[in-house]
Design a protein around this nucleic acid. Structure first.
Lengths: 152, 152
DNA sequence: GCGCATTTGTTGCAATCGTAACCATTGGAA
DNA sequence: TTCCAATGGTTACGATTGCAACAAATGCGC
């Protein structure tokens, strides 16, 4: 007899993750939504291209687990802002190589310290042992959850 | 000089959490979407009422971080299935106390072991030390992230 | 008691999202 | 070469979402 046939949501991993992710993403999005007027998919796209320099839409989707229509629309919207440029791939004309324009690069570089500060503020409220545990636990979870059913 | 002005998304906490939560929720939702035909907000509502026995819509929203319109529609949909019952509160007639019907209770109790099995399978793929780290880390994060800007 | 801000829950509407269908292109297989 | 399945990316459409407005009820100040 476990406890009665009840599931304690506060201890249920998918539920805990979902609540944390929602709350943190919502908080963080205020930091760039107000400042840059970006939606979440747009921020992700900007951050991905900013990190890797040049990517295709498919690569962005694979890397950030975004649906390809989401990526397509985020890219279109960032292009209207003139933050990214599309360069047709010479070898495969289905593909377009996406990069940051000068203005986009500037926006990205403005955003990076904001993101770092947000994360630092969160981590500073934990002890060193807690931080270590969190990072180790997340790494383990990524190994088991992101490579299982489809990932790898 | 940190590294250049680049943010490594793979190490960025909000990004990691979001990817994990999305992937795990998506996997888990298949376990009940196919079996019970429930959406995510409906599952959450069912699970919350199942755990607490009786709740109001506002309480469900506060507990599970769902927008009140989401709760309202999930409740309406579960009521159509006759899985939950509404009882007007005698003291405050704005409020309706929500409980599971007999059929709803049965569905809930069928669902609980499925959820437990899903979680167990995920945790079994980690070492004991990793599990411990994950749970400790999440607890610490909940303490800092769910009580900060608005939670408490 | 009366008035008014607050709370509970629902609904209209615009924006966002994902499935499916689609076009253009590619790379083999025959 | 000629098919044709597979891939990259966009778009149409229906479903889901959240904001804002709303009605009903409460309760506090006076």
């Amino acid at each position: 007899m476990t406890q009665r046939n009840v599931l304690f949501l506060e201890e249920f991993l998918p539920y805990r993750l979902s609540r944390l992710s929602d709350a943190i993403s919502r908080d963080f999005s205020q930091a760039y939504r107000a400042r840059l007027g970006l939606t979440r998919p747009e921020w992700r796209t900007l951050a991905t291209i900013g990190q890797y320099g040049t990517m295709t839409a498919t690569e962005i989707g694979a890397h950030s687990s975004m649906h390809k229509t989401k990526v397509s629309r985020a890219v279109a919207s960032l292009e209207v802002r003139r933050w990214i440029t599309r360069v047709p791939d010479a070898r495969d004309r289905r593909v377009e190589r996406l990069s940051l324009s000068k203005v986009g690069q500037k926006a990205y570089e403005d955003m990076v310290p904001v993101a770092r500060a947000f994360e630092a503020e969160m981590l500073e409220r934990m002890s060193a042992a807690e931080r270590e545990a969190l990072l180790a636990g997340l790494a383990a979870l990524e190994r088991t959850a992101l490579s299982g059913p489809d990932g790898a």
